[in-house]
Design a protein around this nucleic acid. Structure first.
Lengths: 222, 222
DNA sequence: TCAGAAAATGACCAACGGGTCATTATTGGC
DNA sequence: GCCAATAATGACCCGTTGGTCATTTTCTGA
């Protein structure tokens, strides 16, 4: 594999003397790990680089996470679960369903256009063959929750009579796929720039087309 | 990484005596490599497994491809380019644009729902951080061609007055993303089955919604 | 101030896997 | 049949890297 310079530390003033910071380490390690994993993938990520990124030595990483795989799992959980909680909070809002759906899109897009966070599904997917249990966990605790969230909003729209009937699973995938993919393209140097459309236009077009396809009301466009 | 049994050979009758088959080797190696790469990703794929999958010893692989990276590139080219040729042949058909667009979808879907072929974009993407030149090549020779193909059909539809105006790059991505993602989900055991919708419904729904969103004509649904 | 607890280090180990090459097996021409 | 020519082998080499642990440094509180 081509040599790549080690991941530049997130918050590393050089020659920092060693410090005991038991509480701060886990979060710093998770952040550094996500950065390295997102660039190199799981297998090609070096624990040495992750450690350097967090400003510690390699040995220290293993004081907090018992193995590379354990670190990988922890990264996924820490990066994803808070956003799911935030998403589910939306359901307590009793706005009309189409408005709720657009808010759901907006939140999802905020998460998935982040180049670090968008790496998570890509990583899980890429390693599904090597870590079937991680993929199963992800499906169980993330995908399922996302679908439930989307499904709840969709069901509300059906009751209100503003959405047309369709397979909710299919719709959910169709809603998410373009956002998941956008995250990937953004990080490729040259690709996104050449296509030269901004994320805003892309997401807005997607949401508009999707909502138009979903809607029962006769269309009125501007 | 968890131990996984070696890739079962595609066409390996056991204890096959060694044979000199200079012409057949490359294709067999490419097929075996794609299979192993698609399951394990690039970094975790072992040349030993690829060799076994093709019914040869590890050393033989290096007689045909000078390195793992060269094999990786060859796999990508061999898997993708023929389908691009086929796609571009569509343009010689002078059917109306919306019909052409649906044919384009159909061809794309045939390719991307294949669990092996759908691995290609995922692999390129996952390794973009480690092999920027491969990613650049892919973008240059694959993505660009796909966009040109889609763009040609779309432009025809604009001229015929049956498509509404929008950013062609955005539209192309939106058209492809759900198909690219479908390929990923299919290979995850349990995930696809639980969602229990078949690829047909998924793709048909996507195409219908997309075409409805793209169309200028007043909608008529059944 | 100092002693003991515990956080951090980095030299070290062992396994793994990409890549090599001297050797062996196969084949086609004569 | 026999003999180059060459396809194929697999034991071997060695750089890389996940993971360990004896040692060093930092911190706390008495």
């Amino acid at each position: 594999m081509p040599v790549t310079p080690p991941a530049s530390a997130a918050s590393l003033t050089p020659a920092q003397p060693r410090r005991r910071r038991k509480d701060a380490r886990p979060a710093e390690l998770l952040a550094a790990a996500l950065e390295v994993f997102s660039v190199h993938g799981y297998a090609a990520a070096r624990m040495e680089d992750i450690a350097r990124g967090a400003g510690v030595s390699k040995g220290t990483v293993f004081l907090y996470y018992e193995s590379k795989e354990a670190l990988f799992r922890a990264v996924i959980e820490a990066a994803v679960l808070p956003h799911l909680d935030a998403g589910e909070a939306l359901l307590r809002d009793d706005a009309p369903a189409d408005r709720l759906m657009r808010e759901l899109f907006e939140g999802t897009q905020r998460v998935l256009l982040d180049p670090l966070l968008s790496a998570i599904p890509r990583l899980v997917d890429a390693e599904a063959g090597n870590f079937p249990e991680v993929a199963a966990y992800y499906h169980e605790h993330v995908t399922r929750r996302v679908h439930a969230l989307f499904g709840a909003v969709y069901a509300r729209g059906l009751r209100e009579g503003c959405f047309r009937a369709a397979d909710v699973g299919v719709l959910c995938q169709l809603a998410l796929a373009p956002l998941l993919y956008a995250g990937n393209w953004r990080r490729l140097p040259g690709v996104w720039e050449e296509a030269c459309f901004d994320p805003e236009t892309y997401c807005r077009t997607h949401v508009d087309m999707f909502m138009r396809g979903l809607s029962c009301a006769p269309e009125k466009q501007g």
